[in-house]
Structures are given as structure tokens and as C-alpha cells.
Nucleic acid binder design. Structure first.
Length: 425
RNA sequence: GAGCCCGUAGCUCAGUCGGUUAGAGCGCCAGGUUGUGGCCCUGGAGGCCGUGGGUUCAAUCCCCAUCGGGCUCCCCA
């Protein structure tokens, strides 16, 4: 056996046939729930101009400074998309979706790329689903966004998680707070972690998110954003909290929750699970009222979230939740001899046209080998067609669960199997 | 970017304190049943023991490097 010469790039995996059913089931759930919420799917390219990604997510964010896959082709710099909010907003602006009237309620499913060191629950190519509500400043948009997110986990049966909620204020509130925070931390500058020192000028709020032990004392004593929100932001935050309470969605306010992308304003939230290990964020999102304008559109408020599909599937595994059932083949035709094989081949389309799944041996092996194959494929019925059966036009239909056989014509076989399928279990 | 652990059959793993043909279970293939699966029995295929170099009479085992994987920190989905 030759050693494999090629393998997937670091941090990227093949999703093999025994895993695709779970993926498809998850995708199915997302599509169904999105339809119930009246969201429409959007699909955008895997590549985006690097400029868009940098502008959208923020030049100084971790994602942009060290995690993007970027390359040049001709005069253009491209980036493999690390998230989809900025691309969806780009699409919204590019195609003037605001001109269609109303609020754009969009959802997506697809691969994202970040050049990080892989570990459990973190890959370089991973998949997210998420949604973006563009064109509403109302708290209902925030609440419905969170409600959709929670609905997916609820439907799947993942209950062990924490929803953290915060408001990081609008532009005015935030600029005021940033200055207050800077003034508060500056005297302790030399005692802060190196990373936090760097953040002090550019993005002091990210310090609140620091896990460095030396920072904790100062973070705890630092002024809280809630005390610096202006009236609009405060009212908005109160409405969001109230809405979640009305919907019985439990949450905890975390004044230190600051998300990793620069575009967030006001509402920020994150869903984390103890079933995931160190990469415990299942999903996250927030409001981004300035991004559309930043990218070249008219000032347009928006809110959205993104969820990690691999992490969701890991949680399912930990909780022994299976999203899909074993697929069952309706009919496998065992045939013996050239003539019977030809008959089997010609009978397959007829079976399939009646909505049945049907297959046969592709290798010309022994009857026993064919039966083994039928068993391995979890076949419900096997048709046995040898010379005798072919001559008499009376085939054997074997019920693989009961190990019972009957002689039937081709027509009778179809009606028997169809009747069996339509019977309630 | 930093730290720790690990690379032996398709999969999960034994093993060799360095010494003739490297093992098991599962899976795969075939036979036992000249036309019958799942259980059982028998047999078979499948490994230059991740790769390169070093030490040695001798390396899958020791040493170094490298690649790959896992976990952690940072950050995030």
C-alpha cells in the first residue's frame, strides 16, 4: 500500500460520506427555520477583495492582522473570506438591495477561512451559518436575530450553554467611554500585559476582553460601559433585554463582552458551551449600525450573528445527539448470470421511477458476496434474479429484516415494496 | 507566534530493556453452504513501524532534524 503523497492542507479536513448526513441534516434544519422566520438565503464568493475585509472587520483586529489568507493576482489582492458579515454588506451595497424596499433579512451557510493554529473546534477552513438583518434599528431586529440563533440550538436539543449579552454603545457613547477607560488605565500602563498596552491607544475596549492575569485587577476596577451609554443606547439595550425576557430566552449581561470585529455597535452577544473545551464559543454576533456606510452605502442600521457548524456538531457528539438516521436502501438486486444481470440493470430505472432507491452489484461477484453487499447497505428488500426466476418471470423478493422470501412478478414486487413503504411504522 | 504530548496494518491499539519471518481486535476478500446476508469456523490480502540523517556489527525501538496530528495559551465560530 503506497503512502498517501497528498493530504489536505493544515487545518482543513475532508467531510467523508459517513459524516455528510449530519451536515445535510443540520443544513436542512437551518433552511427550514430560516423559512419560518422569513429569511432569504444569500451566497457570495469565497474570495473577496482584501480591502473589503480589512475595512469591514478592522485593520487592527486579530483576524486581519494575523489570520487572513490573502494573495495577489494581477493588481488585485484577494482574501479567502474569514467571516461573512462584511461580504454580505458589500453585496447589499453593490446590488442596491435597499432599493427593494423593506428590511433585508438574509441568511447564509458556507465555508470560512482563518489562518490560525488548528485545535479542537478550530480549523483553518470551517463552516458558519448566520444571518444579517439590514435596514432596521429597532430592537425587534436584535431580538429576532437572537431568537433565530437560539431556535436552532433548541431544535437540535443543545441546551447546555450561556448567552452573554452586552451593549458596547453607539459611536458617541463609545468614544466617550474609550476616553474614560484610557484615562483610567493609563496610570497603570506599565503593569498591564504587553498586548493590553498596545491596545491602550488604538482600541482600549479590547482590554476588557483580556484573559491575561495581570490585567484582571485593573479590568475589575475599570469604569463600566453601561455608565457611559447615552440615552438612545440605554433604551435600546433595555428593550433588547426586555424582549428576550418576554421570549423566555435566558441571558446574562457581561459588561466585559467585547467582540473581535470593529464593526459592532450597541448590542453584542455570544453563545458559549461547556461541552466544547477551550474553543467554547458556539455563536456570536451583534449590531453593526456603521458598517454599511463604512463600506460605501447609505447609513443603514443592521444586526446579525454567525455560528460555527463544526462546533455545533462537536456539541452534538458530546451530547450523543444524532442529527440523521441511517439511510436504508429499498431494493438491492442480486443477479446471477449475464442475462439476469442485464434484466436487473433494465429493472432499476423502473424501480427508481416509482420513487424507490435501488441498486445492484457492480462487480459480477458471487451470490454470497452480493448478499453481503445488500446487508452492508442496510437494504430493506433484496430481489433475487437467477436463470430460473428470469425464465418463469417470478422473482424472489427477500425481506431482509424478517428473512422471508416470496415469489412475485416484477409488477407485484413494485406494488409490494411501495405498500410496505407507505405503511406507517 | 509560544508551550506540552503523540506518529506501528483501512480503523482502534499492543510490542521490541536494540538482535532472525512486527502482532491483536474490528473491517476487507475468499472458502465452509456448486443460488442466499446478518451469528460461527477456516484461510488470505494488507505494514520498508511518518520522513531524512546520526550512533551501532545490528535501529521500528536510542539521538537529532523535519513533516504531520492532538491539546493548551492568545484569539475566535
Amino acid at each position: 500500500m503506497a503512502k498517501p503523497s497528498y493530504s489536505t492542507p493544515l487545518g482543513m479536513v475532508d467531510i467523508l460520506p459517513d459524516q455528510t448526513p449530519s451536515w445535510r441534516a443540520l443544513e436542512q434544519i437551518i433552511h427550514e427555520e430560516a423559512a419560518k422566520f422569513n429569511f432569504q438565503e444569500i451566497r457570495t464568493p469565497i474570495l473577496e477583495p482584501t480591502k473589503l475585509i480589512k475595512r469591514g472587520i478592522g485593520q487592527l483586529t486579530d483576524i486581519v492582522t494575523k489570520e487572513i489568507f490573502a494573495f495577489q493576482k494581477g493588481d488585485t489582492n484577494y482574501t479567502l473570506r474569514p467571516e461573512l458579515t462584511a461580504p454580505v454588506v458589500r453585496s447589499f451595497v453593490q446590488h442596491h438591495l435597499d432599493q427593494r424596499g423593506g428590511v433585508q433579512k438574509l441568511y447564509y451557510i458556507g465555508p470560512m477561512f482563518r489562518a490560525e493554529r488548528p485545535q479542537k473546534g478550530r480549523q483553518r477552513q470551517f463552516h458558519q451559518f448566520g444571518l444579517e438583518v439590514i435596514g432596521s434599528a429597532d430592537s425587534v431586529a436584535d431580538i429576532e436575530t437572537i431568537a433565530f440563533m437560539m431556535r436552532i440550538y433548541q431544535r437540535i436539543g443543545i441546551k447546555n450553554f450561556t448567552l452573554k449579552l452586552n451593549s458596547i454603545g453607539d459611536l458617541e457613547s463609545r468614544e466617550r467611554y474609550k476616553q474614560v477607560l484610557r484615562d483610567d488605565l493609563e496610570p497603570h500602563r506599565s503593569k498591564l500585559s504587553e498586548l493590553s498596552q498596545q491596545r491602550l491607544e488604538k482600541n482600549p475596549m479590547r482590554i476588557l476582553d483580556s484573559k491575561e492575569p495581570e490585567d484582571q485587577e485593573y479590568i475589575a476596577k475599570a469604569p463600566k460601559i453601561q455608565d457611559y451609554l447615552n440615552e438612545d443606547s440605554t433604551i435600546h439595550f433595555e428593550k433588547v433585554k426586555h424582549g428576550l425576557q418576554v421570549l423566555d430566552i435566558p441571558f446574562e449581561v457581561d459588561t466585559y463582552l467585547v467582540r473581535g470585529m470593529d464593526y459592532y455597535t450597541r448590542t453584542a452577544f455570544e453563545l458559549s458551551s461547556p461541552d466544547l473545551g477551550s474553543q467554547d464559543a458556539l455563536a456570536g454576533g451583534g449590531r453593526y449600525d456603521l458598517l454599511v456606510e463604512e463600506i460605501g452605502g447609505k447609513p443603514t442600521p443592521a444586526v446579525g450573528f454567525a455560528a460555527g457548524m463544526e462546533r455545533l456538531l462537536i456539541a452534538c457528539e458530546e451530547l450523543n445527539i444524532s442529527l440523521s438516521e441511517k439511510s436504508v436502501l429499498d431494493i438491492y438486486i442480486v443477479s446471477l448470470g449475464e442475462e439476469a444481470r442485464n434484466w436487473a440493470l433494465s429493472f432499476l430505472p423502473e424501480l427508481r421511477s416509482h420513487g424507490l432507491s435501488a441498486s445492484m452489484d457492480y462487480t459480477g461477484r458471487s451470490m454470497k458476496a452480493q448478499m453481503k453487499e445488500a446487508n452492508r447497505e442496510h437494504t430493506r428488500f433484496t430481489i433475487i434474479a437467477g436463470e430460473n426466476e428470469l425464465n418463469n418471470r417470478a422473482f424472489i423478493l427477500r425481506d431482509m429484516n424478517k428473512s422471508v422470501e416470496v415469489n412475485l412478478s416484477a409488477k407485484e414486487i413494485i406494488s409490494t415494496v411501495l405498500a410496505h413503504k407507505s405503511r406507517p411504522k
